[in-house]
Design a protein around this nucleic acid. Structure first.
Length: 282
DNA sequence: CCCCAGTCCTGCGGGC
DNA sequence: TGCCCGCAGGACTGGG
């Protein structure tokens, strides 16, 4: 399940395409149920074939391929949104029915970018600057989790009456945190996931911000978490290794690594599994 | 404002 | 051994 570290790894995996010229754009053939690709492939081709990739960016859990113009001010933005099972691949991408979209690029280290998605919940969008602001601007997507300051983090969360774990998943409040890393950061910060945001004291927010940064940056170093279902992999189709660092995620009924006494508990919040330790997190 | 359930979709593992 | 069902959750939507 790609969250910030996984999507950042995808971004870095195709950074070598910057400076290259797009020579081919295609939906992959033999698809049963195509994913959402907008606008039409014909229109995408008209707008980006022959154009240069000027940057590769990330907005929350989406990879943004900037096309035309300059690195600071591109003409068009190709959004690759993996959702649950999407992968952004560069080398020898599989040619099975889950391959959804691909581009060929000339004159750069990366000569191919593929979008593979087993479940097909992801999407590909080509946006201009106005559409980008409307769909993925600050009113829709909060500050990035690895860029937000401790002060702004506190300001954004402390007034809410929601449970902290649920609020962390709200991409309008903060961008990039998903179900897995939310459990992990609350564990290291020793905060109970069901505690209301407005009950948590400022020093705890400072600690949560610190642990969030630690975990996300460490997970990027490990190229993300590849779970036992094997859904996420990096741009070279290789597993990440941060799954070996998990403290609580998917460890229900196992002994907590921190206190070595209590078992990790699994609860459901907002229809999603949360893992935590009753002794360590209050 | 916030919450909740439903929607999309495939592969898997538990249970019988 | 084989089959069925429920679950996994990111983002969005509609109703309360």
């Amino acid at each position: 399940m790609p969250e910030l570290p996984e999507v950042e790894t995808m971004r870095r995996g195709i950074l070598g395409a910057v400076g290259g010229k797009i020579t081919l754009v295609e939906k992959t053939r033999c698809l049963k149920k195509p994913i959402s690709i907008t606008p039409s492939i014909a229109q995408i081709r008209r707008r980006i074939i022959g154009k240069r990739i000027t940057n590769v960016d990330r907005i929350g859990k989406r990879v943004v391929v900037c096309v035309g113009g300059t690195a600071e001010k591109a003409n068009d933005f190709l959004i690759l949104e993996p959702r649950m099972t999407g992968l952004v691949l560069v080398a020898n991408p599989p040619t099975d029915e889950h391959m959804r979209f691909r581009m060929e690029i000339a004159g750069s280290d990366v000569d191919e970018i593929g979008f593979w998605d087993r479940r097909g919940l992801g999407n590909v969008r080509l946006l201009n600057q106005t559409e980008l602001n409307e769909q993925l601007g600050p009113s829709k997507i909060g500050p990035d989790a690895i860029k937000i300051s401790a002060g702004e983090f506190f300001e954004r969360f402390s007034a809410s009456g929601r449970e902290i774990k649920v609020a962390l998943l709200d991409q309008k409040l903060i961008a990039g945190v998903g179900n897995l890393y939310a459990s992990e950061m609350l564990h290291l910060a020793k905060i109970h996931p069901q505690r209301k945001c407005n009950e948590i004291k400022k020093p705890s927010y400072t600690k949560l911000h610190e642990k969030m940064l630690d975990i996300l940056l460490d997970a990027i170093k490990h190229e993300g978490s590849t779970l036992s279902d094997g859904t996420y992999r990096n741009a070279l189709n290789k597993d990440g290794s941060y799954q070996n660092m998990h403290q609580v995620y998917d460890r229900a009924d196992e002994i907590c690594f921190t206190c070595k006494k209590n078992k990790v508990i699994r609860v459901v919040q907002a229809q999603r599994a949360t893992f935590f330790c009753r002794r360590c997190q209050r």
